[in-house]
Amino acid sequence: MLCAIIMAGGKGTRFWPLSTEEKPKQFLNLLGNRTMIKMTYDRISKILPKDRIFISTTSKYKGLVLEQLKDISPQNIIVEPESRNTSACICLSNLYVKKKFNNCNVIVLPSDHLINDEKVFVDTVLEADKFLYSNDKSIITFGIKPDRPETGYGYINYDLDSSLKINKVISFVEKPNYTTALKYLNEGNYYWNSGIFVWNVNLILNLIDKYLNNTYKVLSPILELSDYECEKFINENYRLTDNISIDYGVMEKYSNISVIEGDFGWDDVGSWSSIDRYNKKDLDGNILNSSGVLMKSNNNTVLIKKKILLNNVSDLIIVETDEYIVVSSKEHAQDINLARDYM
């Protein structure tokens, strides 16, 4: 049996001012006419019934989840009272799944990623799930073959000599600089780390117990509590968990991790350049979501509510919200989020 946990507690501040702490990017229509979380939920719903799909989020976003995912049962929304990094979130979510289904495989999915080929995605998920039935001590992660020296993603170094589709992970690598990313691209035995994992629920909980014993000890009593008692217990004790990522806390310490290539058109939609990659452009490379006139202007991304005139400008990002108008060069788009502290 396979269950899914969709991680939807992130604050999405890299897309400020469109994405805010009140309504982060997973709840926005950034690419198309569905929100990112709705696209993720619809995608995994193709192979799983709704009672086996869980949403992990913070108390701040529970209302947005219920508003946007009409089919989800409130009992399948796992609520963190506060953000404590991914290890606590993973532990809590998998304990909930274990309470309901005891022994199953679990796929963990970010809520705000783009996947273009849903059929290939579904086939890859099913293949990973099948692999675990004969390799239940393994963890599988989905790797994306790089097509550029991307510095915004983590990487997976894997066993290039293997002839299998599912290969041994040698190591996880943090976000590199440009020179190192180009080296990884040329060497050919590195994937981008998609952040998608498949594991057996009992295996991941045993590993958290082993490597992050405090977190497991804090949260594991919920296995014996009623739903009402769980909520009260978590609200009182969640702050005592370790504030560390699952990558640092478990993945870097466990050797039996494999990677399957996810050739399904993936993007984590984590930067303004990803908006450029997937939105329709005019003949001069401009993206414009409203009416306006662009004279001798090229390669601009304009997301506004009013009519606009651009005259003889290039490589700009122009964003309008109810509170702000932001204008930035694309070259320094990564500084937009830093500047918000001055607003």
Results as ranks from 00 to 15, higher is better:
residue 213 N to S: 09
residue 109 L to G: 05
residue 192 W to M: 10
residue 164 L to H: 13
residue 188 G to V: 00
residue 170 I to P: 09
residue 124 T to C: 10
residue 92 L to V: 08
residue 197 F to K: 05
residue 173 V to N: 14
residue 115 I to N: 06
residue 137 K to I: 01
residue 165 K to P: 14
residue 141 T to Q: 03
residue 179 T to R: 15
residue 214 N to Q: 10
residue 192 W to K: 03
residue 174 E to Q: 14
residue 105 N to W: 07
residue 204 I to Y: 13
residue 125 V to R: 00
residue 126 L to Q: 07
residue 179 T to A: 11
residue 106 V to H: 04
residue 113 H to A: 07
residue 167 N to K: 14
residue 106 V to Y: 05
residue 162 S to K: 05
residue 156 I to P: 07
residue 129 D to P: 02
residue 214 N to S: 08
residue 193 N to C: 02
residue 116 N to V: 00
residue 118 E to F: 02
residue 132 L to R: 02
residue 178 Y to C: 05
residue 112 D to V: 00
residue 155 Y to P: 10
residue 187 E to P: 03
residue 132 L to Q: 06
residue 193 N to S: 05
residue 174 E to Y: 15
residue 195 G to T: 03
residue 148 R to N: 09
residue 165 K to M: 04
residue 172 F to I: 04
residue 212 L to K: 10
residue 162 S to L: 02
residue 119 K to H: 08
residue 210 K to E: 15
residue 180 T to V: 13
residue 106 V to A: 04
residue 150 E to M: 04
residue 189 N to C: 06
residue 165 K to V: 06
residue 95 L to G: 08
residue 192 W to H: 06
residue 98 K to S: 11
residue 169 V to W: 07
residue 93 S to C: 10
residue 105 N to L: 07
residue 99 K to E: 12
residue 203 L to V: 02
residue 90 I to W: 15
residue 131 F to G: 04
residue 130 K to D: 15
residue 122 V to I: 15
residue 156 I to V: 11
residue 129 D to H: 08
residue 199 W to Y: 13
residue 199 W to A: 06
residue 146 P to H: 11
residue 123 D to I: 00
residue 145 K to N: 09
residue 157 N to R: 13
residue 126 L to E: 13
residue 197 F to A: 04
residue 199 W to H: 08
residue 184 Y to T: 02
residue 152 G to K: 08
residue 196 I to Y: 00
residue 204 I to N: 13
residue 194 S to D: 01
residue 183 K to Q: 10
residue 205 L to G: 05
residue 154 G to R: 09
residue 201 V to P: 08
residue 118 E to Q: 08
residue 99 K to D: 11
residue 146 P to N: 05
residue 164 L to Q: 14
residue 150 E to D: 15
residue 163 S to A: 09
residue 95 L to D: 09
residue 121 F to Y: 08
residue 145 K to S: 08
residue 205 L to W: 04
residue 193 N to L: 03
residue 94 N to F: 07
residue 151 T to D: 09
residue 145 K to D: 05
residue 179 T to S: 15
residue 105 N to P: 03
residue 131 F to R: 03
residue 126 L to V: 01
residue 174 E to H: 13
residue 191 Y to H: 00
residue 200 N to V: 05
residue 99 K to R: 13
residue 148 R to W: 11
residue 205 L to D: 05
residue 146 P to C: 07
residue 170 I to H: 11
residue 114 L to A: 01
residue 128 A to L: 04
residue 189 N to P: 08
residue 92 L to E: 12
residue 186 N to Y: 15
residue 172 F to E: 04
residue 160 L to D: 15
residue 196 I to C: 00
residue 214 N to V: 12
residue 182 L to Q: 14
residue 90 I to E: 07
residue 136 D to Y: 10
residue 207 L to Q: 09
residue 139 I to T: 06
residue 111 S to N: 08
residue 171 S to Q: 13
residue 160 L to A: 15
residue 206 N to G: 12
